[in-house]
Amino acid sequence: MRLQVGTRLQLILARPGKPAYFSSLIGYVSGEYLLVKLPVEHGLTVPLKEGERVTVRVFSGVSVYTFACDIESMLLSPRYYMHLSFPQEITATPLRSAARVKVNLPVEVRSPPSEHGSPVDAMLSDLSITGAFISAQTVLGAPGDRISVSFTFRVQPTNQQVEIRTDATICSSRSLDMNGKRPASQHGVGIHFDRISENEQFMLQHYLYEAENAVTP
């Protein structure tokens, strides 16, 4: 997997309701153990137990890696971290990074990108980790124009709300008449995100993975 220090991890516990938490990798000794930060929720460390089994999910950008570990030990002072058993088997599922997942999310658009001025309310109808398609009742711009977008989504099973604010470049623009299925006044643009932080990308990958698997057998 070639994990780097600081890589975001999702920890899924073998408990009723399948609670999941987010953490990060501190380091590892190959074949022996992983060092992982204790997950925190509402400012408090999540109550875990030594010997407890956890499933770890890692998004690499091109694949989703899943493996099981046991909590071997926990250290609460001077830092909060734990030792996990080194994974024996790792499952890799290809993640179609450019694949778009159908969604229906409100999005605020500013053109040109600026913190000033009133945003345009629009709808984000499909989404990937690299871009999206947005429809609105006004023309948002032409190919090559730059805009800023802001939208939120929730990741399960913790129902955590994530907000994405980023600049984007318009790649395509067209009317959305759609043979009478949509009003002729609707316009759509395909955009490419200019920059998204590593944490935002992780959350977006997680959201897309869950959304795609919710509708794909």
Rank of each mutant, 00 (worst) to 15 (best):
A122V: 01
E115T: 13
V162A: 05
T91Q: 13
Y80V: 10
T216R: 12
M178N: 03
T152H: 11
S114Q: 04
V149D: 02
L35S: 02
D194W: 05
S85C: 01
R79S: 12
S175D: 08
D177H: 14
L3V: 10
I12K: 14
Y21D: 03
L204C: 03
A214E: 05
R2D: 09
M82E: 13
I196Y: 08
F153I: 07
S172N: 08
M82Q: 10
I147K: 03
P112H: 02
L44A: 14
I164C: 01
G51Q: 01
V36I: 14
V215K: 12
Y28W: 04
E212T: 12
V5M: 11
R2S: 11
Q186A: 13
S30K: 02
V103G: 09
V29S: 13
E50A: 13
Y207D: 02
V149R: 02
L127T: 02
E200D: 11
Q137M: 15
L208I: 02
V149K: 08
Q205L: 15
A142R: 05
A142Y: 09
L208K: 12
P112F: 12
Q10G: 12
G6V: 00
V189R: 00
Q160P: 10
I26A: 03
L124K: 08
S185M: 12
G61A: 08
S63E: 13
R2K: 15
I164P: 01
E212G: 06
E108C: 02
I26M: 07
Q88N: 09
Y80I: 06
S97W: 14
I134Y: 07
S23G: 06
P217V: 05
V5F: 03
N179I: 07
P113F: 04
G61L: 00
T66K: 06
Y21R: 07
A20M: 14
I191G: 06
